[in-house]
Design a protein around this nucleic acid. Structure first.
Ligand code: SF4
Ligand code: SF4
Lengths: 162, 162
DNA sequence: ATAATAACGGATATATAATATCCGTAAATA
DNA sequence: TATTTACGGATATTATATATCCGTTATTAT
């Protein structure tokens, strides 16, 4: 199993949007350019973020994407669920009901211990992701990104945001 | 993203093996029959369990699979990693290095905050799975499985183990 | 010995999902 | 009016998961 690659893209994009001036927006084309990603496919992911309400979108010249709320109020889990969907990774197919020892489905009132264990682990995963805000991500990024790259980025922003 | 369906199969199979008499073994064919699963594909997963050292296998008549150690010493994580592989779900593709602001790769000494956050969440997931032993799974199963199904299973075991 | 059972590994086929592109439409700006 | 951009649907491509098949080897029973 591999996590959707778009998750990495989306978190990076949100992190960039978080460091934008208040009234600025970046179109998909620009974000794709910044990270050297396939433009149209990234656009799909950005639309998913939009549908999840994490970003606001504006059409037309000067339009694009911006965060819909402060980065401190967006968690990494929000972004992950927006891209990956909210379905649990572990899907129960009820094999306990089948085969020669299976009995009437009505006898199984709740998910078995296996499913519950898997879902508990998934909850631990989500809880951890929910404990990290986009603001923390960007703060860490600011601290750890090589200063040369920060300079280059700022210059690029300057050009792109007119 | 969806977890490998074989994970559910494998945990169920291990649970069955855990409740077998000390010297008994079940061949893949029988396990597939018990859960109404595709025989050859299940066999692949069982071989993975074997390679991971969780079960011992014996060829020839009377052969098959049995647990390699007490169920209390096998965790759900052991089984999950045996089937799903040990690679982290989140794969870092280093997009921060690309695009117009990327700098010399040598400048990036360690994974960025995003990757670290994703991996921390994955660790929480694994820790939770590691905290549950196969014995706990089977104990819960024994308590919660409808008594009629337990009876049917016992009868089936009796016939199959000769 | 011979036949039957069963694991094992490799090769292959099929189905599903992830990745990626394309196009037409609608909205906003200049 | 022309340009920019988001959006949704359709489609193509690639990778992975699912499933089967086969030949080999080891083991047991006859
Ligand atoms: S509830 Fe248990 S038996 Fe049913 S599908 Fe889920 S894991 Fe399998
Ligand atoms: S380290 Fe950060 S930038 Fe590099 S691939 Fe991982 S998530 Fe992306």
């Amino acid at each position: 199993m591999k996590l959707n690659e778009g998750i990495e893209w989306a978190i990076h994009c949100c992190s960039i949007l978080a460091s934008l001036p208040e009234d600025a927006a970046l179109p998909a084309r620009r974000l794709a350019e910044f990270f050297d990603l396939p433009e149209h496919y990234l656009a799909k992911h950005l639309q998913a973020l939009s549908q999840a309400g994490l970003v606001n979108s504006a059409k037309g010249p000067g339009g694009g994407y911006r965060l819909s709320r402060p980065a401190a109020n967006i968690t990494v889990l929000d972004i992950v669920l927006a891209i990956d969907g909210t379905e649990p990774h572990f899907q129960c197919t009820e094999i306990r009901r089948k085969g020669p020892s299976g009995v009437d489905p009505a006898c199984y009132s709740k998910p078995c211990g296996i499913a519950r264990a898997m879902w508990r682990a998934e909850k631990a995963w989500r809880d951890e992701l929910a404990s990290i805000s986009l603001k923390e991500i960007t703060d860490i990024g600011m601290q750890e990104t090589p200063s040369l790259q920060i300079e280059k980025s700022m210059e690029w922003f300057g050009n792109v945001l007119k």
